[in-house]
Amino acid sequence: MATLTLNGNKYPYQSNETVLDTLLNANVEIPHACREGVCQSCLMRSLDNSPPSLAQNGLKDTLQHKKYFLACRCYPKQDMTVALPDHEGNEIIAEVSGKELLSADIMRLVLSFEEEFSFYAGQFVNLKRPDGLTRSYSIANTPAQSNTLEFHIKRLPNGRFSSWVHEELAVGEKLSVSEAKGTCHYLPGKYDQPLLLVGTGSGLAPLIGIVNDALNKGHSGPIRLYHGSRDPEGLYLIDEMQALAENVENFDYTPCVSGENDREKFTKGRAHDIALSSTDSLTGWRVYLCGHPEMVNQTKMMAYLKGASLSDIYADAFYLSSSGK
């Protein structure tokens, strides 16, 4: 008989029961609805053994890779330690090792850590300051850079966390960092698939991580990055991205400005419009979207209508909450 472990509690598992049955019978509250593997509301994650493949049917490949599964379709063959999607893993403590303004209102924040911490480029974490105030930020670097995490933190009007990072947080101080979350990241395989990445504002951060990760892993298909802002001041790391585009044959970079702009090096228009009109069809493409939630939702739809498969469109829409005060 197998045993399930959730939050340190052990639940003996009866044969022919699903993980969902076992937990519900033990009066553990697990979100669920259809119980047929369709609605995906009972999504959980295994922290040790791989879930049976039936339990992962229909999930995005990035979720499968991280051992997510549907509790209502999971008949475990062996012991499993499981977690609900937002209640897994431990926090680590990291130390501020660098701060640098990238533009008038975007700060590069570099944290160093000693404990083991695994992530995929493009994922996000919750940063928590000592008094408990917490915000989500995307990781801008790749795991190849040893034991550091980089973030691009945009200062928001009346943003308590972002103002604190900009004005008060000093090198040497400590922050706590949640486990890495989110499914918007590069996965090795299909090295020749064309990639389209569209970001607005500090939504550039995860996309830079994904581009670098893809290049590190030998991605050979075209990689096109569009970064947009209303005014030229909202764009940043322009020289760095242009240098990368000059050095790497399969990487293209297009900075876009939708408002008034007299500088020739920027394309005029909204990044997602320009990105979408740059190709007749997105059939076979993989698409990554980060930034303004309306842009992300609209572009998801447009990319799909232009032929990208639903399973090839990646976006983490947490910006709504993180743009709160």
Binding site: V38, G58, Y304, L310
Partner: peptide, 12 residues
């Protein structure tokens, strides 16, 4: 067209 992921779940 507001929440594509929800719509897709319903189409499934």
């Amino acid at each position: 067209t507001s929440d594509m992921d929800k719509q897709i779940a319903k189409q499934r």
